[in-house]
Design a protein around this nucleic acid. Structure first.
Lengths: 137, 137
DNA sequence: ATTAATCCTATCAATTTAGTAGGGATTACA
DNA sequence: TGTAATCCCTACTAAATTGATAGGATTAAT
């Protein structure tokens, strides 16, 4: 299941992308418009900022803005920040690989082989999608 | 993340498929061979039996067996039984559809559109795979 | 009968999720 | 310079899920 965190994060990014111009967007505005608990959203946007996807401006008239054009913001990056590894098992993860304790030989593991294909299918989608595709901008 | 339940379930099914012949396979045997906690495995095989994928024989020399040939056991079915819906959000689930509370119009929702593609990518894999592919039988 | 197996229900500890609470730091603007 | 608005940060918490474990009831072969 997609976590609420990821869902909210994607919606917020879409909202910011659609806002278009250079003025930063406030958490409160996104929160109201997208029906996302404000404090929760704050923490999500904070992680997106720390990961470099969003920038922020503090104080009055502050808010969040995209660090790059929507077409430059890849879903692979966004999903890894919000949801974590794209692979369903660590032993097929490209970025967070970990060997399974139980599995003596990965190449003989039926789960391993299946999950590589699932991962590739998902990656194919995320690699071909940017925030521009999501937001229509 | 793939749950241990699903991982264990897939390994157990593979094991049973590879055992080949008609004698039912005991939980204790699978448990030892695949390093799966026996009581946990019991409950997993029980759900697989209740769903119709496995059959069982009680009492001495009892155990579990496949109800169909491995090539007839589709991953879509197995995954739905073990892991639940294949879709990452209920609003794109084919079998367990649910509308989102927040979303006024699905067709305008960026998350919705993205997750449909992810679902289709994953379905493509599961629809093309049977237990025969996993187990090499 | 005895033994070996599945079947069933209940319980539980650890982890994760989805928040909430409260305030600190920074900036714009009057 | 004061005040309001805004992000920033830490800590806490309730609920749900996960990954089991415990104990026995039932069934079947010998």
């Amino acid at each position: 299941m997609l976590s609420k965190k990821t869902k909210y994060g994607l919606k917020a990014l879409t909202f910011i992308a659609r806002s278009g111009d250079d003025v930063p967007v406030q958490v409160s505005v996104i929160s109201k418009s997208e029906q996302i608990p404000q404090k929760f959203l704050e923490s999500i946007l904070l992680t997106l900022r720390k990961s470099g996807i969003l920038g922020s401006k503090k104080g009055k008239h502050g808010g969040y803005y995209l660090r790059n054009a929507p077409s430059e913001i890849k879903m692979t990056d966004v999903m890894r920040v919000l949801e974590g590894p794209i692979a369903m098992v660590p032993c097929v993860s490209l970025n967070y690989y970990e060997k399974c304790d139980d599995c003596p030989d990965e190449n003989l593991c039926s789960v391993h082989k299946l999950m590589i294909e699932v991962r590739d299918g998902t990656l194919k989608v995320f690699r071909n999608k940017t925030l521009a595709d999501l937001s229509g901008v």
